[in-house]
Design a protein around this nucleic acid. Structure first.
Length: 493
RNA sequence: GGGCCAGUAACUCAAUGGUAGAGUAGCGCUCUUUUAAGGCGUUAGUUGCAGGUUCGAGUCCCGCCUGGCUCACCA
């Protein structure tokens, strides 16, 4: 591919400044700069502090002939500097002529406050650090084209401080969760991304090929079965921030690769788990937002108080009067749905769906959209949960909960199935459903079954859609706003 | 995949079918307290791509590309 630099006249002007910088004794691409303060730190200093050395990207510059002001920027903030011809002599003109907005510079000087009260580095000397060949986005509006903001996220980070703030908050959220888990006896592990079976969830995987072994492999859709292997191996409590991949729709709440936090704790059941995650998330929310009440896209969400817990059956019964416990077959359920005048938008998939999937459709239609404040939905139908432990009193449901916030399932958790005979039966059931055309099924995973045959302790595990939760906490309208570089079609050459 | 909308200078945006413009950025001059600095002057375009209608297309029609919103499927 040809490398081409001369696309517009503004670039030519900047390119021409490179030899001019060399002539003026500056290296257009300097190797280092000894910094005493970041811009954010510098503006906290008292007036009169000397020998402040600060560097960053030049983001604004205003010259008055013999006096000039500019700002240098990094992720921690901006600081103003002032250049004076009386102080710098010829070097004043050199800066004015050869430094462009977007270039990296280092300045040295003492702290002053200007007439308007802004902390400013009164520059005694400056060093050119690195040349920018392209003009940054317009200073007032920044980038508004949503496509360009994603493709050139680095520009978005520079020109929109909310974007930088959001990604810094993302890092803090993940760190806060990690610290909390570490402080509660959990061990962080890494499990494979390339796998032989796409198991642990119901989703279409990406497929690729390993040449050395000459086998097709799948990108993981969830780390679940590997984390359970860790538990079988004696690791008491484990977790992973697992980048996972699903070859499905891409939209505001779905990305092809996304971050799934999963953890598993030996000797817990799903109630222990519910209690724990409520503590963890309340800690996380107040730690990162300073409150337990937040506003998402204008919608108030209240995380304070004990979160409601309701069974799947009670919830659906409450919202449409259908009692799924009394309807054992797909046909009976379908009749009840029809006689209640409930219509799904696509009949194609309904035709192929088993009873479990049909219940899921019903729940998503009549109940889920109205669940705004955090609520634990428990006791899902067995046919929807091939990896969850069935309930001791009611074998038609499983010991499972989902945490729903703003209509989003942000958390999914079970008392895990550890009975290998039961698991073998569930796999068989899934295989049968698949044979009948239900695409929402799970692969039979005999290697995982083998592990279970060796024995597992009681376990409760949990999965949390990290990107979605971050979107909630940072009031981001889409998941793409909380992922630095979401997948896009390549730009045409 | 379906429906709706958008793509004009490096960036932000204009232009009843009739000479493609402005602001920012850039370049030149001016200016010692600005912070969207000011003043005077000035450069900058294959109007996403490719066809068609027309004396004439940024504008109308057809196809394609890219993106956004939305519906369906999915966390």
């Amino acid at each position: 591919m040809a490398v081409s630099l001369d696309t517009n006249d503004q670039m030519k002007v900047r390119l021409d400044k490179i030899p001019a910088l060399r002539e003026a004794g500056e290296n257009p691409y300097t190797d280092r700069f000894e910094r005493t303060h970041t811009p954010g730190e510098a503006r906290e200093l008292a007036d009169g502090v000397e020998n402040v050395r600060c560097c960053g990207r030049l983001v604004s510059f205003r010259s008055f002939g013999k006096l000039a002001f500019g700002h240098i920027f990094d992720m921690y903030g901006k600081v103003q500097f002032a250049l004076q011809k009386d102080v710098l002599g010829d070097r004043f003109k050199t800066f004015e002529k050869l430094v462009d907005i977007g270039d990296f510079v280092g300045v040295e000087g003492s702290m002053i406050s200007t007439k308007t009260g802004e902390k400013t580095i009164s520059v005694t000397s400056w060093t050119f650090l690195s040349k920018s060949l392209r003009a940054l986005p317009e200073k007032f509006h920044g980038l508004t084209d949503p496509e360009l903001r994603l493709r050139r996220r680095y520009l978005d980070l520079i020109s929109d401080s909310d974007v930088m703030t959001r990604f810094k908050l993302r890092t803090k959220i993940i760190k806060t969760v990690r610290d909390f888990l570490d402080g509660n006896g959990f061990t962080e592990v890494d499990t494979p991304v390339l796998t032989n079976k796409a198991s642990g969830a119901l989703a279409r995987p990406f497929t690729t090929h390993n040449n050395a072994l000459d086998i097709d492999v799948f990108l993981r859709i969830a780390p679940e079965t590997y984390l359970k292997r860790c538990i079988a191996g004696g690791m008491d409590r484990v977790y992973e921030f697992a980048r996972s991949f699903r070859n499905e729709g891409v939209d505001a709440s779905h990305l092809p690769d996304f971050t799934l936090l999963e953890y598993y704790a030996s000797y817990w059941n799903y109630v222990d788990n519910m209690n724990f995650i409520e503590r963890l998330l309340k800690h996380l929310i107040s730690e990162t937002t300073g409150s337990l009440e937040l506003s998402y896209q204008g919608q108030k969400i209240n995380f304070a108080g004990d979160w409601l817990r309701i069974t799947f059956r009670d919830l659906i019964f409450r919202d449409c009067g259908i009692d799924i416990d009394t309807l054992d077959t797909k046909e009976a359920l379908q009749n009840a749905i029809n006689s209640n005048g409930i219509v799904f938008d696509t009949d194609v998939n309904v035709a192929k769906a088993g009873r479990g999937t049909l219940i899921d459709f019903l729940y998503k239609k009549v109940s889920r959209p109205a669940l705004i404040d955090p609520i634990f939905v428990t006791g899902h139908p067995l046919d929807l949960s091939p990896l969850a432990r069935s309930n001791d009193e009611n074998p038609k449901v499983v010991d499972r909960f989902q945490l729903v916030v703003n209509g989003w399932e942000v958390v999914n958790a079970y008392s895990e199935l550890v009975d290998p005979m039961d698991q073998a039966g569930r796999f068989a059931q899934q295989a049968e459903a698949r044979a009948q055309g239900d695409t929402e099924t799970m692969d039979v995973d005999n290697d995982f079954l083998l592990c279970m045959e060796y024995g597992m302790p009681p376990i409760s595990g949990l999965g949390l859609g990290v990107d979605r939760f971050i979107a909630l906490l940072t009031d981001a309208p889409t998941l793409r706003d909380v992922v630095l570089f979401p997948l896009l079609r390549p730009e045409k050459e």
